[in-house]
Computed example of a mutant assay.
Amino acid sequence: MDDYPLLNVFWTMMWFFLWVLWLMLLFRVIADVFRDDSSSGWAKAGWTILVIVIPFIGVLAYLIVRGDEMGRREIARHEAAYRYYGGSNGGPAKGTGHAEQLSRLAELKSHGDLTVEEYELAKAKVLAA
Rank of each mutant, 00 (worst) to 15 (best):
M1E: 09
D3I: 15
D3W: 13
L6Y: 08
L7R: 10
L7W: 07
N8L: 12
V9C: 01
T12I: 09
M14I: 14
W15S: 11
F17K: 02
L18W: 14
W19E: 08
W19M: 13
W19L: 14
V20L: 14
L21W: 10
L21Q: 07
M24P: 02
L25W: 03
L25C: 10
L26A: 14
F27P: 00
R28K: 11
V29T: 09
V29Y: 00
A31D: 13
F34I: 07
R35L: 09
R35E: 10
D37H: 03
S38W: 00
S39D: 07
S39W: 12
S39R: 06
W42K: 11
A43L: 14
A43G: 07
K44T: 11
K44P: 13
K44F: 10
G46W: 08
W47S: 02
I49F: 13
I49L: 15
L50I: 00
V51A: 01
V51Y: 01
P55R: 02
G58H: 01
V59G: 00
A61H: 07
Y62A: 06
R66N: 03
G67S: 08
G67F: 07
G67A: 06
D68Y: 09
D68S: 09
E69W: 02
E69A: 11
E69I: 04
M70P: 03
G71W: 04
G71R: 10
R72G: 01
I75R: 14
A76W: 08
A76P: 06
A76D: 15
A76M: 12
R77I: 09
Y84P: 03
Y84A: 11
Y85A: 08
G86W: 06
G86P: 05
G86V: 10
G87V: 12
G87E: 10
S88G: 01
G91H: 02
G91E: 03
A93C: 13
G95S: 12
H98P: 12
A99W: 05
E100T: 10
E100D: 14
Q101C: 08
L102G: 06
L102W: 06
S103L: 14
R104E: 15
R104T: 14
R104V: 13
A106G: 15
E107F: 10
E107P: 01
L108F: 10
K109M: 11
S110P: 05
S110Y: 06
G112N: 05
G112H: 04
D113I: 04
L114I: 05
T115H: 03
T115Y: 00
E117S: 09
E117I: 07
A122P: 08
A122K: 14
K123G: 08
V126F: 05
L127D: 00
A128D: 15
A129I: 11
A129L: 14
